[in-house]
């Protein structure tokens, strides 16, 4: 499957609060960031933790402004997020 995102793209992190294991930290939920790079393809942790078959999927380093995440702070936080956790922002 072709990658959905490229460096520079603006993306929104999922706002879903899943009942199972996930690697999308809650502090990024619903926040908009910028793709820095594609880190490679890896099976989705949410699926592997539940013993479900999981096709490798792209993971991206996504940079968020602290102000977007917390309403304060002058730093950035770069979070590694699977494609399933991200939506395009037009």
């Amino acid at each position: 499957m072709a990658d959905l995102f490229a460096p520079g793209d603006r993306v929104r992190a999922t706002s879903v609060d899943p009942p199972h294991h996930t690697r999308a930290p809650r502090y990024v939920r619903g926040a908009v960031g910028t793709v820095v790079e594609r880190e490679g393809v890896f099976p989705l942790a949410d699926d592997r933790a539940r013993g479900l078959p999981s096709a490798p999927e792209a993971v991206y380093a996504v940079r968020f402004a602290a102000r977007e995440l917390f309403g304060e702070g002058d730093h950035d936080v770069t979070v590694a997020l699977w494609e399933s956790y991200l939506r395009a922002v037009s």
Partner: peptide, 11 residues
């Protein structure tokens, strides 16, 4: 078990 199942069990 795999690493993700292990993390899940810790959480």
């Amino acid at each position: 078990y795999n690493l993700d199942e292990f993390r899940d069990a810790v959480e």
